[in-house]
Design a protein around this nucleic acid. Sequence first.
DNA 1: TACCCGTGGTA
DNA 2: TTACCAAGGGT
Length: 381
Amino acid sequence: MADGGGARPAEAELAAALLAWYDASRRALPWRAPPGERSDPYRVWLSEIMLQQTTVTAAQPYFIRFLKRFPDVRALAAAPVEGVMQAWAGLGYYSRARNLHACARVIVNELGGRFPDTIAGLEALPGVGPYTAAAIAAIAFGLPAAAVDGNVERVISRYYRVEEPLPGAKPRVRALAQALVPQRRPGDFAQAMMDLGATVCTPRGPSCGLCPWRAGCGAHAAGDMETFPRKAPKKAVPQRYGAAFVLVRDDGAVLLRVRPPRGLLGGMDEPPGSDWREAPAPPEAAALLAEAPFPARWRAAPGAVRHVFTHFRLTLTVFVAPAPPDFVPPPGCRWEPRRSLAAAALPNVMRKAVAHGLDCLSRDWRRLERAGAGKISGAGE
DNA sequence: TACCCGTGGTA
DNA sequence: TTACCAAGGGT
């Protein structure tokens, strides 16, 4: 660690200044108890899982919907996992949803419906790691735990000018953060750190003029705030190509299957598809068509679906076909009625693929109608 | 340790 | 368009 400006306030003074700032500037969020009221562990836990690597803006509507559908941990434990995946569809990182459900069952079936109130007990739960355990401990149980997330790493590394790059610097950052946690109001302190990082000490263009810690901040004194936290360089993301096959029945139903429970998009719905292969250029349509799961009058939809995952980019060619008259869904596949398609457990990339295929099909129908090709049977869009 | 695991917003 | 990034955890 390098050093920054002049003398710094003691840890207790820093905590007090931050709490005073928080009392005046805290964000009102649906999972936060009003000032002075005790937080519900279930809501704290649910929000912390949803907020892992996810923005407040994205998580908020999911949290409200989820809480309505699963009001407490017993309701969640009693629900089928498919319903949980449905409620999570679109949020990403789907192992979180599976772990969330598994965790609810552990709490109800093995822990009498109560959340553990120790760091070790919390961290033993599926989907709960060091950060989330500390956050729940501090916010829901008032324990003096340091919840170190990306916000806190940024605030701490700037304030103390931590020169070592992440993730190697994590232990040091954690120790520095822990030293600041006050005995009183540790939960508010944890949330104050996150609010400070999210609204003032932002990755780009920090509002140092509004910061309660400006006077002692090493990076502010040097004027190079945006260069912290130091980070190891990242690898380039490869490009992969594949195909999705959208089979549509006369009544508009779409053929879907469920992906394997683990791995990418685990346990989520998708139309049948090919393997995804890494390549420098898009493959020929004929090569992709050779991977169709069954014969049909496949037609390539113009254009393609592009999607960015954490560690690769995907370009999906979408083939679409009307279901043959006597088609029987192969094992593992099912017909999803058009009416309930919106509620299916489709991740966004697959939602895009299905929509792309249906768009293509409806364009065909309109073109046929204009050409006077006669009555088109089945439901429209 | 180094990957793997989604998605949408922003500069 | 590219690149980065957001309340991380599992393996």
